[in-house]
């Protein structure tokens, strides 16, 4: 046998994909189940989807999540892009090592610790808890990811571009704006989307940082899921998976498109 795709590889891949997709497929299929009992098949039906618009708490939580997600992603993209530039383009500066560590810290800390730490900080600083604090908490997590994506992309952009601009008398900030930043757009967009997905996905940080009027969709789903499996959650979960899958596909097409054209 030479190197190649042996049957054992096909079997491994197939088993792996079944493990990864079976739970999601089962969830989606049973969201169309007529029966209220989770495991008994009672025929196809859209009844759980029809009931969703009347579930005011769920709809409200979905809008809250979307608002928080967009705000957190935008904030994180702004700070994260600056951080990425600082890490890749400013050379040596005092505290660069500490800066890199602080950027990476939220990425490796378990969410429960980050959530607790942020909540205690909001209390210590006297910041009223609500949607604003959830936005901040999500942005803290996402800044690390955005900075990583931006930094990785910047490393591929030739610094001679800025040198040329500088030699032609371009001031420093403008040098960045006309040099690498236009080439960074795919990375910035990818970072924004990543931050949005992180925010929409998060339960733990939101639970710590939230206050009145900032119950997110994952928090709502979680409080129901604790009590067991219901067809209503299956339906909203399936919708959510569909939306996320569509967004990711769209994003990858967009990013490929921009990357290809340049």
């Amino acid at each position: 046998m030479k190197r190649g795709f042996a049957p054992v590889h096909g079997v491994a891949l197939a088993l792996g994909l079944v493990f990864l997709y079976a739970p999601i497929v089962l969830l989606a299929v049973y969201s169309f189940n007529e029966s209220r009992l989770a495991t008994l098949w009672g025929g196809w039906s859209l009844r759980w989807y029809r009931g969703l618009p009347e579930n005011r708490a769920l709809i409200e939580a979905a809008w809250t999540s979307l608002r928080i997600g967009i705000a957190a992603a935008t904030l994180a993209t702004a700070v994260g892009t600056l951080t990425g530039i600082a890490l890749d383009r400013l050379g040596r500066f005092a505290g660069r090592w500490a800066l890199g560590g602080l950027v990476a810290l939220p990425l490796v800390l378990p969410e429960a610790i980050l959530g607790l730490a942020l909540l205690l900080t909001f209390i210590a600083l006297g910041i009223e808890r609500g949607q604003g604090t959830v936005i901040l908490a999500h942005a803290v997590l996402a800044v690390g990811y955005v900075a990583l994506v931006v930094q990785a992309r910047l490393a591929l952009i030739d610094p001679r571009l800025e040198e040329a601009a500088r030699d032609l008398g371009c001031p420093p900030l403008k040098t960045l704006a006309v040099g690498p930043v236009p080439l960074l757009w795919p990375a910035i967009m990818a970072g924004w989307l990543l931050a949005l997905v992180l925010s929409l996905d998060d339960l733990v940080l939101a639970s710590f940082a939230s206050g009145p009027g900032s119950t997110t969709l994952p928090m709502r789903i979680f409080s129901q899921a604790r009590l067991g499996v219901t067809p209503e959650i299956n339906a909203i979960a399936t919708l959510l998976i569909g939306v996320v899958a569509a967004t990711v596909l769209l994003a990858s097409v967009l990013i490929k498109g921009t990357a290809g054209r340049r």
């Binding site: 997905v197 996905d201 994952p218 499996v229």
Partner: peptide
């Protein structure tokens, strides 16, 4: 890319 809460719930 799908929400982890939902993937865990599915189990």
């Amino acid at each position: 890319w799908t929400p982890s809460l939902i993937r865990i719930y599915a189990w």
